[in-house]
Protein backbone atom coordinates (compact mmCIF):
# COMPACT_ATOMS: atom_id res chain seq x y z
CA UNK A 1 0.00 0.00 0.00
CA UNK A 2 2.80 2.34 1.01
CA UNK A 3 4.90 1.88 -2.13
CA UNK A 4 1.90 2.88 -4.18
CA UNK A 5 0.94 5.94 -2.11
CA UNK A 6 2.78 8.59 -4.13
CA UNK A 7 2.16 7.17 -7.63
CA UNK A 8 -1.50 6.69 -6.67
CA UNK A 9 -1.81 10.28 -5.45
CA UNK A 10 -0.19 11.56 -8.65
CA UNK A 11 -2.48 9.55 -10.92
CA UNK A 12 -5.59 10.44 -8.91
CA UNK A 13 -4.69 14.14 -8.71
CA UNK A 14 -3.82 14.35 -12.40
CA UNK A 15 -7.04 12.63 -13.51
CA UNK A 16 -9.31 14.62 -11.20
CA UNK A 17 -7.51 17.86 -12.11
CA UNK A 18 -7.94 17.25 -15.84
CA UNK A 19 -11.63 16.38 -15.47
CA UNK A 20 -12.44 19.40 -13.30
CA UNK A 21 -10.54 21.68 -15.71
CA UNK A 22 -12.80 20.49 -18.49
CA UNK A 23 -15.89 21.02 -16.32
CA UNK A 24 -14.67 24.47 -15.35
CA UNK A 25 -14.00 25.42 -18.97
CA UNK A 26 -17.57 24.49 -19.85
CA UNK A 27 -19.51 25.72 -16.82
CA UNK A 28 -17.44 27.99 -14.58
CA UNK A 29 -14.91 29.96 -16.63
CA UNK A 30 -17.72 31.49 -18.76
CA UNK A 31 -19.31 32.75 -15.52
CA UNK A 32 -15.97 34.17 -14.32
CA UNK A 33 -15.49 35.84 -17.69
CA UNK A 34 -18.95 37.43 -17.50
CA UNK A 35 -18.46 38.38 -13.82
CA UNK A 36 -15.19 40.12 -14.61
CA UNK A 37 -16.84 42.00 -17.47
CA UNK A 38 -19.48 43.26 -15.02
CA UNK A 39 -16.88 43.93 -12.34
CA UNK A 40 -15.05 46.47 -14.50
CA UNK A 41 -18.32 48.27 -15.17
CA UNK A 42 -19.58 46.54 -18.30
CA UNK A 43 -23.32 46.37 -18.96
CA UNK A 44 -24.86 42.90 -19.12
CA UNK A 45 -26.53 43.73 -22.45
CA UNK A 46 -23.17 44.54 -24.07
CA UNK A 47 -21.56 41.25 -23.09
CA UNK A 48 -20.52 38.93 -25.89
CA UNK A 49 -19.83 35.48 -24.37
CA UNK A 50 -16.99 33.31 -25.69
CA UNK A 51 -18.60 30.52 -27.69
CA UNK A 52 -17.89 27.20 -26.02
CA UNK A 53 -14.91 25.36 -24.72
CA UNK A 54 -12.59 25.91 -27.69
CA UNK A 55 -13.08 29.67 -27.58
CA UNK A 56 -12.07 29.65 -23.92
CA UNK A 57 -9.06 27.38 -24.36
CA UNK A 58 -7.82 29.01 -27.54
CA UNK A 59 -8.99 32.54 -26.76
CA UNK A 60 -6.64 32.76 -23.81
CA UNK A 61 -4.53 29.59 -23.82
CA UNK A 62 -2.13 30.86 -21.19
CA UNK A 63 -4.89 31.48 -18.69
CA UNK A 64 -6.46 28.11 -19.49
CA UNK A 65 -3.13 26.32 -18.98
CA UNK A 66 -2.54 28.17 -15.70
CA UNK A 67 -5.92 27.04 -14.44
CA UNK A 68 -5.33 23.50 -15.69
CA UNK A 69 -1.96 23.35 -13.90
CA UNK A 70 -3.39 24.64 -10.65
CA UNK A 71 -6.32 22.25 -10.86
CA UNK A 72 -3.91 19.34 -11.25
CA UNK A 73 -1.75 20.59 -8.35
CA UNK A 74 -4.87 20.98 -6.21
CA UNK A 75 -5.86 17.45 -7.19
CA UNK A 76 -2.46 16.05 -6.19
CA UNK A 77 -2.55 17.98 -2.88
CA UNK A 78 -6.00 16.64 -1.97
CA UNK A 79 -5.09 13.13 -3.18
CA UNK A 80 -1.99 13.12 -0.94
CA UNK A 81 -4.12 14.17 2.03
CA UNK A 82 -6.74 11.50 1.31
CA UNK A 83 -4.12 8.80 0.69
CA UNK A 84 -2.56 9.66 4.06
CA UNK A 85 -5.99 9.25 5.66
CA UNK A 86 -6.50 5.85 4.01
CA UNK A 87 -3.08 4.67 5.20
CA UNK A 88 -3.71 5.99 8.74
CA UNK A 89 -6.93 4.05 8.78
CA UNK A 90 -4.84 1.03 7.83
CA UNK A 91 -7.53 -1.22 6.38
CA UNK A 92 -7.75 -2.70 2.92
CA UNK A 93 -9.84 -0.57 0.58
CA UNK A 94 -11.72 -1.01 -2.71
CA UNK A 95 -12.77 1.54 -5.31
CA UNK A 96 -16.29 1.39 -3.90
CA UNK A 97 -15.08 2.46 -0.48
CA UNK A 98 -13.03 5.03 -2.36
CA UNK A 99 -16.32 6.66 -3.41
CA UNK A 100 -17.18 7.11 0.28
CA UNK A 101 -13.73 8.59 0.97
CA UNK A 102 -14.36 10.94 -1.96
CA UNK A 103 -17.71 12.00 -0.54
CA UNK A 104 -16.05 12.59 2.84
CA UNK A 105 -13.33 14.71 1.26
CA UNK A 106 -15.91 16.75 -0.63
CA UNK A 107 -17.99 17.24 2.51
CA UNK A 108 -14.95 18.40 4.49
CA UNK A 109 -13.13 20.50 1.88
CA UNK A 110 -15.96 21.82 -0.31
CA UNK A 111 -19.42 21.50 1.24
CA UNK A 112 -18.69 22.49 4.85
CA UNK A 113 -16.73 25.68 3.97
CA UNK A 114 -19.41 26.53 1.37
CA UNK A 115 -22.11 26.60 4.08
CA UNK A 116 -20.51 29.69 5.64
CA UNK A 117 -18.62 31.01 2.65
CA UNK A 118 -20.38 30.05 -0.58
CA UNK A 119 -18.24 29.77 -3.72
CA UNK A 120 -18.47 33.14 -5.43
CA UNK A 121 -17.54 34.68 -8.78
CA UNK A 122 -15.41 37.84 -9.03
CA UNK A 123 -17.23 41.02 -8.06
CA UNK A 124 -19.05 39.72 -5.00
CA UNK A 125 -18.48 42.04 -2.05
CA UNK A 126 -16.52 40.33 0.72
CA UNK A 127 -14.51 41.58 3.66
CA UNK A 128 -11.53 40.53 5.73
CA UNK A 129 -9.54 38.00 3.73
CA UNK A 130 -7.50 36.70 6.66
CA UNK A 131 -10.53 35.98 8.83
CA UNK A 132 -12.16 34.07 5.97
CA UNK A 133 -9.02 32.04 5.33
CA UNK A 134 -8.76 31.23 9.03
CA UNK A 135 -12.39 30.14 9.12
CA UNK A 136 -11.81 27.98 6.02
CA UNK A 137 -8.91 26.10 7.67
CA UNK A 138 -10.83 25.80 10.95
CA UNK A 139 -13.90 24.40 9.17
CA UNK A 140 -11.90 21.98 7.03
CA UNK A 141 -9.94 20.69 10.05
CA UNK A 142 -12.97 20.36 12.33
CA UNK A 143 -15.10 18.64 9.66
CA UNK A 144 -12.35 16.17 8.69
CA UNK A 145 -11.64 15.25 12.30
CA UNK A 146 -15.35 15.15 13.10
CA UNK A 147 -16.07 12.80 10.17
CA UNK A 148 -13.21 10.52 11.21
CA UNK A 149 -14.65 10.28 14.72
CA UNK A 150 -18.20 9.73 13.46
CA UNK A 151 -17.41 7.17 10.78
CA UNK A 152 -14.55 5.24 12.34
CA UNK A 153 -15.99 5.24 15.83
CA UNK A 154 -15.76 1.44 16.19
CA UNK A 155 -12.05 1.33 15.36
CA UNK A 156 -11.28 4.43 17.30
CA UNK A 157 -13.14 3.62 20.46
CA UNK A 158 -12.13 -0.03 20.18
CA UNK A 159 -8.48 1.02 20.00
CA UNK A 160 -8.87 3.24 23.07
CA UNK A 161 -10.75 0.47 24.83
CA UNK A 162 -7.99 -2.04 24.12
CA UNK A 163 -5.32 0.35 25.34
CA UNK A 164 -7.17 0.97 28.56
CA UNK A 165 -8.39 -2.61 28.81
CA UNK A 166 -11.98 -1.46 28.94
CA UNK A 167 -15.05 -2.19 26.83
CA UNK A 168 -15.27 1.06 24.90
CA UNK A 169 -16.01 -0.45 21.51
CA UNK A 170 -19.53 0.89 21.57
CA UNK A 171 -18.67 4.12 23.30
CA UNK A 172 -20.95 6.99 22.37
CA UNK A 173 -18.61 9.82 23.14
CA UNK A 174 -16.55 9.84 19.91
CA UNK A 175 -19.78 10.24 17.95
CA UNK A 176 -20.90 13.16 20.09
CA UNK A 177 -17.47 14.81 19.93
CA UNK A 178 -17.37 14.18 16.15
CA UNK A 179 -20.78 15.74 15.58
CA UNK A 180 -19.81 18.63 17.84
CA UNK A 181 -16.64 19.24 15.82
CA UNK A 182 -18.60 19.28 12.56
CA UNK A 183 -21.16 21.75 13.91
CA UNK A 184 -18.69 23.95 15.81
CA UNK A 185 -17.41 26.20 12.95
CA UNK A 186 -21.01 26.96 11.94
CA UNK A 187 -22.07 27.78 15.50
CA UNK A 188 -19.03 30.02 15.74
CA UNK A 189 -20.10 31.49 12.41
CA UNK A 190 -18.19 32.49 9.30
CA UNK A 191 -16.65 35.97 9.36
CA UNK A 192 -19.00 38.92 9.02
CA UNK A 193 -20.48 39.58 5.60
CA UNK A 194 -19.37 36.33 4.05
CA UNK A 195 -22.14 34.06 5.31
CA UNK A 196 -24.66 33.67 2.46
CA UNK A 197 -23.75 37.16 1.35
CA UNK A 198 -26.69 39.38 0.55
CA UNK A 199 -24.36 41.76 -1.22
CA UNK A 200 -23.75 40.04 -4.53
CA UNK A 201 -21.95 43.13 -5.80
CA UNK A 202 -21.73 43.49 -9.53
CA UNK A 203 -22.28 39.75 -10.11
CA UNK A 204 -25.98 39.58 -9.28
CA UNK A 205 -27.94 36.94 -7.36
CA UNK A 206 -28.56 34.59 -10.31
CA UNK A 207 -24.92 34.35 -11.21
CA UNK A 208 -23.88 33.83 -7.58
CA UNK A 209 -26.36 30.95 -7.29
CA UNK A 210 -25.24 29.36 -10.59
CA UNK A 211 -21.60 29.75 -9.65
CA UNK A 212 -22.06 28.06 -6.27
CA UNK A 213 -24.00 25.22 -7.92
CA UNK A 214 -21.40 24.53 -10.61
CA UNK A 215 -18.53 24.88 -8.18
CA UNK A 216 -19.99 22.36 -5.71
CA UNK A 217 -21.08 19.84 -8.37
CA UNK A 218 -17.73 19.95 -10.17
CA UNK A 219 -15.77 19.55 -6.94
CA UNK A 220 -18.07 16.62 -6.04
CA UNK A 221 -17.06 14.83 -9.25
CA UNK A 222 -13.43 15.80 -8.63
CA UNK A 223 -13.38 14.31 -5.11
CA UNK A 224 -15.20 11.13 -6.12
CA UNK A 225 -12.66 10.58 -8.93
CA UNK A 226 -9.80 10.97 -6.44
CA UNK A 227 -11.51 8.52 -4.07
CA UNK A 228 -12.20 5.89 -6.74
CA UNK A 229 -8.66 5.99 -8.13
CA UNK A 230 -7.00 5.93 -4.70
CA UNK A 231 -9.32 3.12 -3.59
CA UNK A 232 -8.56 1.08 -6.71
CA UNK A 233 -4.79 1.65 -6.74
CA UNK A 234 -4.15 1.45 -2.98
CA UNK A 235 -6.53 -1.50 -2.66
CA UNK A 236 -4.80 -3.65 -5.30
CA UNK A 237 -3.15 -6.68 -3.72
CA UNK A 238 -4.31 -5.48 -0.32
CA UNK A 239 -3.06 -8.75 1.14
CA UNK A 240 0.63 -8.01 0.69
CA UNK A 241 2.58 -6.16 3.32
CA UNK A 242 3.63 -3.34 1.01
Amino acid sequence: MIKRLFPAALIAGLSAGLVISLAQAIFIIPLIDFAEFLEIGGRADDYVPPKGFMAIALGDPERFLNTLSFDVLTGVAFALIMAAGIVFHGRAITWKQGILWGLGGWAAFALAPAIGQPPAPPGVAYVDLEARQLWWWLTVSCTSLGLVMLVFIGDWAGECGRLLDGGWRNAWWPKVVGAGLIIFPHVLGAPENSAISTDTGTAGADMVRDFAFYSLTSTLAFWVIIGIILGAVLGRGAGDKN
Partner: peptide, 30 residues
Protein backbone atom coordinates in the same frame (compact mmCIF):
# COMPACT_ATOMS: atom_id res chain seq x y z
CA UNK B 1 2.30 12.57 2.45
CA UNK B 2 -0.08 14.56 4.67
CA UNK B 3 2.52 17.28 5.23
CA UNK B 4 3.34 17.41 1.52
CA UNK B 5 -0.36 17.60 0.63
CA UNK B 6 -1.09 20.38 3.13
CA UNK B 7 2.02 22.31 2.03
CA UNK B 8 1.03 22.02 -1.61
CA UNK B 9 -2.53 23.05 -0.75
CA UNK B 10 -1.25 26.19 1.03
CA UNK B 11 0.78 27.20 -2.02
CA UNK B 12 -1.92 26.35 -4.56
CA UNK B 13 -4.82 27.75 -2.57
CA UNK B 14 -3.39 30.57 -0.54
CA UNK B 15 0.05 31.89 -1.50
CA UNK B 16 -0.31 35.50 -2.66
CA UNK B 17 2.69 35.09 -4.97
CA UNK B 18 0.73 32.72 -7.17
CA UNK B 19 -2.51 34.70 -7.02
CA UNK B 20 -2.83 35.75 -10.65
CA UNK B 21 -2.05 32.41 -12.25
CA UNK B 22 -4.18 30.53 -9.73
CA UNK B 23 -7.07 33.03 -9.87
CA UNK B 24 -9.69 31.00 -11.74
CA UNK B 25 -8.85 27.75 -9.95
CA UNK B 26 -9.23 29.44 -6.58
CA UNK B 27 -12.63 30.86 -7.48
CA UNK B 28 -13.77 27.48 -8.77
CA UNK B 29 -12.56 25.60 -5.66
CA UNK B 30 -13.76 28.42 -3.44
Amino acid sequence: ALGLGLGLLSVVGYAQASHDVAHDSRHAFS
